[in-house]
């Protein structure tokens, strides 16, 4: 079976079954995605583009169900909470933060 098509008669084969999701879980999806991406430096417009991309199934489903206005409100709040990201233009300093095994002997 694993190398062929799924056996539709297999009761344990959940692939392709649509599971119930509700508005609450879509809202949670929007919050989680917006928070995580805001924390790594995404801005409002970058995040909105992510939600509008149909290939990001979960966020896009949330956008379609919640509407752009609601998602933008969530995005703005997350960007305000987790930004602004501080950029430092420099080579990463040695032996600060991450200590790699090769460097450990020197420390």
């Amino acid at each position: 079976m694993p190398y062929g098509d799924p056996d539709a008669a297999d009761p344990n084969l959940l692939v392709g079954v649509s599971l119930p999701g509700d508005r609450d879980s879509d809202l949670e999806m929007a919050w989680a995605v917006a928070e995580e991406y805001a924390a790594v430096g995404y801005g409002e417009e970058q995040l909105m583009r992510l939600f509008m991309n149909p290939r990001f199934g979960g966020p896009h489903e949330a956008l379609r169900r919640l509407g752009e206005e609601e998602v933008r409100r969530v995005v703005r709040e997350c960007v305000a909470a987790w930004g602004p990201v501080r950029f430092v233009v420099e080579d990463a300093p040695d032996l600060v933060g991450l200590r790699l095994p090769r460097q450990r002997e020197e420390g």
């Binding site: 649509s18 879980s25 290939r55």
Partner: peptide, 13 residues
Amino acid sequence: PTGEELPVHKTWF
């Protein structure tokens, strides 16, 4: 072309 409409991984995973 309309992959988001297929009933696969709908809503959450």
